[in-house]
Design a protein around this nucleic acid. Structure first.
Lengths: 225, 225
DNA sequence: CAAATTTATGAGCAAATACTCACATCAACT
DNA sequence: AGTTGATGTGAGTATTTGCTCATAAATTTG
């Protein structure tokens, strides 16, 4: 996911529809894509998303083609395009899916009491999330940075800001406004790198990540509450 | 660049040559690609590499096509394929180019006296390098993680290990073998994220990155020399 | 049951892509 | 000047890619 803050513009327009003789019946200029209403439809959508994630993390962007995704999902290419208007939308849905998972986990922390203990929990959640599929997380992060922010992304930023506020209090944040960004960066850097190196021990990694996070905080010589 | 440590396997075979009638003269099964010998040739190669970097960082992997790269470089597609046997080789050359630049800068630090001052310099060099083209750095990092390690990469790892050894001494490293990896991860995470957020002030970022690095070190409660 | 709606299929199309090759141009040398 | 090899060119080729659409199957509804 993207760090809390602003984002960047999009890049490329989708390919225009192929030149074809006008249809006799259709009045709608652009058919709205279908939303899954039956259970098998949502199953198809999930299979497609999972296949996309799988292909991306094992084969990179080169292997990330719509036909390959549909095949891996055990669905037809037509089914894919019934739920995603184009390839970019699929990628965005993938990002939204990962964001939503993190959002869910972080949301639980809102019931946690304020204070520094909250930050410990925050680290653990972030580590666990990013370590689940490290390669996928990295690729999606890079892609997310070049896309307009989705609803999920925005909500995530807001939640993170709130949680940092509750963990650190306003004093520290006034002292260093970029503190959330930096803590986030430290966590992401540590976990991405660990994942890249094949590390799989959440516990050990979480301990070291906390060291880094709290070491950075301690450098401000401000008492944590 | 990749963090110091092991790497991952490659992925895809290049497309086989098009089915064609056997050439009358050629005895060599695969023509070796040309090395630039005249100055204009090296200029072409550099233009192609720069164009590739430019396209990758502004358009992502979608826009990263050989034809587009050649056009942006002001060269013909034929010229591109005279110096790079295929697209993957171009990407590897791009990575090697960035690694070489970092290698050059870090190499200078070998003349620096041992001790903690060296780590300060190391941070500054790494920050400057990664902040020069943050988006490009991130994309290449991600790609490098999925490629077999090049010579440049290996030399870079060796040099980094040596510099960390000189900065920290053996005691700390024995205490936490993953220290180099972690420090590297913190630096990369901070700088990548800052670049993603549009931060451009090397100085301020270097200060915060040092806080993070030395904060992590301080958490070990071992006196630094 | 039938009618209506949702879901799934996959051959196939236009465009794009990686890459080749026969040829033109340039530079260095005698 | 002429020879030689390095360099540059870009139309063209086989393949791939994103995506459509006519049609069929499954499910829900009346």
């Amino acid at each position: 996911m993207t760090p809390p803050g602003k984002t960047r513009p999009a890049k490329k327009a989708p390919r225009p529809a192929a030149a074809a003789p006008p249809k006799p019946s259709a009045g709608k200029p652009l058919r709205p894509r279908r939303l899954p209403r039956q259970s098998r439809a949502t199953a198809t959508v999930e299979a497609i998303l999972e296949a996309a994630a799988c292909i991306l993390e094992t084969g990179g962007f080169d292997a990330y083609t719509t036909n390959a995704i549909a095949e891996r999902a055990g669905a037809s290419i037509g089914s894919l395009y019934q739920y995603f208007p184009n390839k970019a939308a699929l990628t965005q849905a993938l990002i939204a899916r990962e964001d939503a998972a993190l959002l869910r986990e972080l949301g639980k922390l809102l019931e946690y009491p304020k204070g520094i203990g909250l930050l410990h929990e925050l680290v653990r959640v972030a580590v666990a999330q990013q370590l689940r599929r490290p390669l996928l997380a990295r690729l999606l992060d890079a892609e997310e940075a070049r896309l307009p922010p989705s609803d999920e992304t925005e909500r995530l930023h807001a939640l993170l800001a709130e949680l940092f506020q509750r963990s650190l209090g306003p004093a520290l944040l006034a002292l260093e406004p970029r503190l959330p960004q930096d803590l986030f960066a430290i966590i992401r850097g540590m976990v991405d790198t660990a994942g890249e190196m094949g590390e799989r021990d959440d516990q050990a990694l979480a301990v070291r990540t906390e060291r880094a996070v709290f070491g950075y905080l301690a450098s401000f010589k401000v008492p944590l509450r």
